[in-house]
Design a protein around this nucleic acid. Structure first.
Lengths: 203, 203, 203, 203
DNA sequence: CATGAATGAGAGTTCATTCAT
DNA sequence: TATGAATGAACTCTCATTCAT
């Protein structure tokens, strides 16, 4: 019986989640302007009025649809030491594999981020958020890069630039490539990303 | 009298060019959906009715606005031997510098390409065009890469992948970085791009 | 135990009254169309679902919200002999003072009535009710007017018209004036209203 | 031929006027909130899109629909000396007749003004306008009232109050009365209004 | 050719009302 | 009985496109 109110709010949470999931899907495919609330509602199997019950405006829904996936991938970028271990080279290698995997399985992440990066004046708040995320990533990853540099396996480059060029290549990975699940392609891309850090000879 | 129709068509060409230029600017900033013909017309200093005199629909105008810049940058990707010379390493280095320069000065190129790449189902024709462009680039650049590999200065990687990862990092370069005209940043990015081809130690 | 249902219905009555009071306030300020049930509910400190428990539709709630204040002021218009005494002039003078006071303290009365009078086709039932009220007032007040006429202190005018012009001036009193609680203004207005009945020289 | 451009703008003016006329009609009947642009468009026999060609928003259209009639009636209130002549009593009498006539023939004036007066917070700009209009009227009419007072035919009352009570009775005149075109009723109302100024005995 | 008025499909948003809990 | 989530009709406003001038 004490679960009763919980199950109530549980149902609401589920519906909210369903709408958000639908929004992420549709927004990532069609962008903000060409997405209609009606389509999101249909995808979420609710009436379009219900969308407004959970999200006040389309704009707010978009923000949530961007920030929620961002929060989901954040740990894989910011908790490097929790997820990856070994030598700096090994850690970076694991990280890259994880990131490529992440985007290959949930390409919406990439699309939404690209949409925001392409329109900084249109989505200033979200852009700012991404900017901070980049800064955080740079700060988190720098010590590992520096250690690798001391070990002589990474280039003597400012860690910030190395991190940013890595994000650039990640970001620039074409969704069409990504969605092709040819493992050999991923491996190759991973190696190429790694080469931004140090001179890697595949064996 | 025979000049009359010529000067007329000259005037018309100029007007058409003004509209297209305005369209490139506005589309690159606001994307297809959030751009209105009225704004393009204002930017081009013509009435919005005139836009339709030169371009049948908004859709067609967008196509031209994407393809024209694409044609403009094509030579710098496809006529590698005309523009760049020296050893493979030198050629690739010159090429990268040229491309980064190109995007840093006219970031609309990058924006428009990213818009199309982010919506392949929405702009199938344009996407196809970009796809062909990538293929062409890969074919053009491969001999140079292979020669570099034979000389032992480039990684032993399939040239296609190297070319594609290069395009990825170019594409992923953030417009905000790009627009900052700090030369040191460009140089650094150039070096990082070069590292996708071979192990480069800055001196 | 027999009190239980009584106290229950007491509680219900209080809640109903709270909602009606809130409705009167909000409807008088915002009119029918721009009032939302949600705002009334908030004002009454109940959930908006509860409003529908007590009043089937917004339309019905509006009717009650108009008629209840009307019933509240009715005695002051229709029970002239109960409230006022003395010569016809004295009675009318007292009446006017009472009416001006009434509207000055609870301007919602005036607002709601004006809303209905301004939209006879929209609120036919309520308009009819007001019409009957006017007729009743005319009938009630006529004997006093006629007596005053016999005494030579009132104009020789059809009592109906005198009553109606009096209602007109009452109705036309601007709420902004009314809400300013300068007593001198009220007195002056009272005198002016009185002058519709007979030639009054202030001393 | 020089008329050509004139006739163009003439046509536009006519269409604009048709829309405004329709707006005045519908707004006066249904109020702001319950009026839809579609109905105004239908009444004006244009597509509803055309309404927005001439008036940016519904709000702006309402403002024009209130202010234009106001401007139309203003002269009859503010140019007293141009329209009326004779003794103060005669002038005021003519004025009242004119005003009652005005409202009896174009009752929209009255309705629109009442709507604004009933919602000062909702229509602050329009309310302010009406306030200024009242002030102007008071200033204009005061000399005539004062002269009448010197002649002993008007009450010794502050002219401002006399003017305001006159506006009150005008404003409070019920549209149902007004629209009944029984001349005897108008005459009677005119006399009653006059009695706010001085003790009038009908003969 | 150039212009911009006219049109109406289509989108976001509001809100009365219903009804399951 | 009280609540508030769900619904969808209805409204305002935008804007590509057409076409008369």
């Amino acid at each position: 019986m004490p679960q009763q109110p919980l199950s109530m709010s549980e149902k609401k949470k589920q519906k909210r989640a369903a709408i958000l999931k639908a929004a992420i899907k549709v927004f990532s495919e069609k962008g903000f302007a060409e997405t209609t609330i009606a389509v999101i509602a249909k995808e979420a199997r609710v009436s379009f009025g219900t969308v407004f019950t959970y999200f006040e405006t389309k704009e707010i829904l978009y923000e949530k649809a961007v920030l929620e996936p961002l929060d989901e991938i954040k740990p894989y970028f910011l908790k490097v030491d929790d997820y990856f271990s070994g030598t700096p080279l090994e850690k970076i290698q694991q990280m890259i594999e994880t990131h490529v995997d992440l985007f290959s399985e949930r390409s919406e992440f990439l699309r939404l981020i690209q949409q925001v990066l392409g329109r900084p004046e249109r989505f200033p708040k979200l852009f700012e958020e991404l900017d901070l995320f980049v800064d955080d990533f740079v700060n988190i990853i720098s010590p590992t890069i520096e250690e690798g540099q001391r070990q002589g396996v990474f280039y003597e480059e400012t860690p910030a630039l190395m991190a940013q060029s890595y994000l650039a290549i990640l970001n620039g990975m074409r969704l069409t490539y990504i969605n092709e699940s040819t493992h050999s392609l991923w491996n190759a891309l991973t190696v190429q990303a790694l080469r931004l850090f140090g001179p890697i000879i595949k064996n």
